[in-house]
Design a protein around this nucleic acid. Structure first.
Lengths: 199, 199
DNA sequence: AGGCAGCTAGTCAAACTTGACTACCGATCA
DNA sequence: TGATCGGTAGTCAAGTTTGACTAGCTGCCT
């Protein structure tokens, strides 16, 4: 539902100022149309919607530039906050993220969170996932007792596998971040030599 | 996109004849509003749409029954075919199934496929997943060479984990089906004693 | 010069989803 | 008796997504 918003907002943030087609092209180059299904219409819609909400500012294109309209946008302060908010929520919260779309979008902007912040959000995610795991275990054990057809177990096993994979991934990512892997926005000395690779 | 269709169609199929609220209640009792996000509007919409397409027949409610309208539906022959078609596709095809919604819906009706058919569809799925796995491996190995920011690796690892979980689940389900687990629609002697549990 | 292929930029109707809302009925309870 | 609570059945406007379509410009070929 808001994977599109995050992606659009994030791309505008990267460019500082961007018009619709620019966002569209960038996202296409990330193949985001596949893993987050962002279609042109959704992008332009999100842009307009957010402009209406005040998280984006419509900046007129520099005069004299030829071609069609080309309306450009820029993040407002509220926009920055909104971006952070979305990013945090999507990384930390599990909810029925339809197909990991939102999580994937969040990971795409991972460095924008600080290293420590990313780590604690992921820890929160891990906690939630453990809770889900416990629930699913219960379901599997006592589900058939409670009159459900047995093949529903296959469903529970599927969800178990997904939750476990997510859990392992998150735990692994936490460790990598702790080890200094990946360049994060708040890393000191962003000089050459790559700040703190595996060491 | 069509998880709703399959669920609605499947419930009507089970009842033989059902009206909207009945379908809605049944799906709610499966918590399908959570794992497949089926909301009332979608259900009634799907029902009408499919009636328009000829896969469902509008049967008038028996006269004299009180209360509001209560329009009932029944599967046509085309409806049976459509149901089979959807079920097969969603079980076998991986595609960007947004959040496993479609797969979950398919598993809910697993017994409706025969045992052998379910097995071969799952085998097809396994094949596809192996292909995806190979692709992701490539991406992970040569991705950073190709100018992508390193944190994109976290994305690939996430997808890898998901694909692997799906793969293991499918393989496990195949074995369980082979071992005779779960009552399938085409099992011989559906007598008491549970046909062919683990043996 | 003419033309046409392809990129740029975005629009739009149709489809679908959301979930709050209406309205009817039976039962319970003071 | 009549107020009101909960279950039944469905509608509807608003919001969102889809992806095919329009239309201007540029560069290149002939």
């Amino acid at each position: 539902m808001s994977a599109t918003r995050l992606l659009v907002l994030g791309v505008v943030r990267i460019y500082g100022r961007a018009h619709g087609y620019q966002v569209r092209r960038e996202l296409l180059s990330w193949s985001a149309d596949k893993w987050a299904n962002v279609q042109p219409g959704s992008i332009y819609h999100a842009l307009k919607k957010m402009a209406g909400e005040g998280v984006l500012d419509q900046v007129e294109a520099e005069a004299g530039t030829k071609g069609p309209e080309r309306v450009a946008y820029r993040l407002t302060d509220a926009g920055q906050k909104h971006f952070d908010q979305l990013l945090q929520t999507m990384l930390a919260e599990v909810r029925e993220d339809h197909g990991g779309r939102e999580l994937a979008a969040a990971v795409a902007f991972l460095p924008a969170l600080g290293r420590e912040r990313a780590i604690s959000l992921l820890q929160y995610r891990v906690t939630q996932l453990k809770g889900q795991q416990a629930n699913l275990d219960l379901m599997l054990r006592h589900g058939t007792e409670w009159g459900q057809p047995e093949h529903v177990n296959a469903l529970y096993r599927m969800w178990q596998g997904q939750v476990e994979a997510d859990l392992n991934w998150a735990a692994d990512l936490i460790e990598r971040l702790r080890a200094g892997e990946y360049a994060m926005a708040d890393d000191p000395e962003p000089a050459f030599g790559r700040p703190g690779a595996i060491e």
